[in-house]
Amino acid sequence: MARTYGHGSTEVTALREVSVAFRRGTFTAVMGPSGSGKSTLLQCAAGLDRPDSGQVIVDGVELGPLSEAKLTALRRERVGFVFQAFNLLSALSAEQNVGLPLRLAGRRPAAAQVRESLAQVGLAERGRHLPSQLSGGQQQRVAIARALITKPRVLFADEPTGALDSSSGREVLRLLRTLVDQQGQSTIMVTHDPVAAAYADTVLFLADGRVVDELTRPSAQAIAERMTRLETAA
């Protein structure tokens, strides 16, 4: 698929003829220098944005022909999101945030289901807290609990540790890894941090809108070296 932004002289090509498949039950990290198109790839793959050409298939459903409402429903049911920051609605408590996707689907979230989801991320006791009463790492875990409550086929994470200190960051990454290992949760994560990427099964390298490399089970050091080469080339 390909994606271009703007027109004429301001035209920016974010993705050129990228073709990737992510396997079920695996943890993939997408890396690349800034401007390499990694965020665009995530947005298109997750149905947040539409590519100009090509097709996106999530869990066997092609996103292209879907209406905005259908696409939204698909995101709600089969896709989970974790973002870098601004992840929770500040007016809602942790429990309310976690239950939100169900409410949006028109269902009243069962208390047990919400609690289970929070327990999964180790925050069973913090349900009544407002986001402002939680640490950054805890907020991110609440966001993960919210993403998981619909039992999504795939979880997308965009720089999930970008706004966290290294120890809370590690906690979040370990949580993601555990979810993949124990529940087979397919996860795709965009990051620029080699240490974060080392938690993944596969690391995909993007540069200038193209996939340029792929490493399996690499060490953080190997990833860092590959990244340095990409950045000096660009």
Binding site: A73, N87, R146
Partner: peptide, 16 residues
């Protein structure tokens, strides 16, 4: 705006 975008991302339709 951000919160609204977040709502949309996690599954709120424009109508909702």
């Amino acid at each position: 705006r951000h919160e609204t975008a977040l709502l949309r991302a996690i599954g709120a339709t424009p109508r909702q």
